[in-house]
Amino acid sequence: MTKTIAIIIIFLIAIALGILVGPTRLDSEILQLRLSRVVLGIFAGGILAFCGCLLQGLFGNPLVEPYTLGSASGAALGASLGIFLFGAISPILAFLGSLGVGFFVYTIARIEGGLLRDRLILAGVVMSFLCSSLVMIIMVLGGRELYEILYLLMGYLGIIINATNRVMIIALIAISIGLVAFLYRYHRELDIISQGTETAAGLGIDIQKFSLVVFFSSALLVGLTVSIVGAIGFVGLIIPHVSKLLFGPKHIRNLGASFLLGATFLLFADTLSRVITVYELPVGVVTSLVGVPFFIYLYKR
């Protein structure tokens, strides 16, 4: 209980810092910009960590996250293509990239009656490399859009929300929150499947259906997130571990705690990204810079 209160307080501090800290004085225009960043930070950090928690549970592997399964890279490829072709981030292409790579990885790993979990990660990593190569080609061809794609690959919360994209972004966030609420219903299945697929099947879980729903819902969520803020790494990998260290193995607590901790972490990282150097850094750079030592500390403790 005290831990829950503590992480909520830290979350609120992260929001406050996200609004108050920055190189310029706070006026109404700056306030609006920072508020939109805070909203996007909560959304993206929460979703990525939530998906990491889902996928690590589903595949019983602590290394799984939207990146290692290829769906984040697929989404980045789709989004880069959108920038190259239309000069703007295109959510549809980002989903298609994410779902396409997800489908491919799933097909490679599928065998009769189940999924080969090792092959799944191998396929995911290989597909990530392929997507990265294709993005490089787009960047070389793009020239003018290079800078924009670079920020997309690293993740950036400072996109300007204006009259043309406001409705779309609000709709995407609403869909994501709906999906998160829907996926929460699987907390028991995630607990059980950590003991192996046979145990899960013996307890009455339809493994095939469950894996499909969770895998592709998270691919969709990642596609949605990347299409708005770009591909932010590390949140989906480390936050579920932090959550398990704090709250134990049960997913009924971990899914929610991962969302909250992911949001908090990304808000801190974004605030840092605005003050570390004279220029704003892509937030993904900061999540790795802060995340790696933190991760090592947690495991060496």
């Binding site: 607990d191 950590s194 003991q195 192996g196 046979e198 145990t199 099947a201 013996g202 009455g204 193995p249």
Partner: peptide, 17 residues
């Protein structure tokens, strides 16, 4: 599953419940 319970040979507990 309400009628038949299955006990596998060995269960690996990836999470420490």
């Amino acid at each position: 599953a309400q009628n038949i319970a299955f006990v596998p040979q060995e269960t690996h507990f990836a999470l420490n419940f």
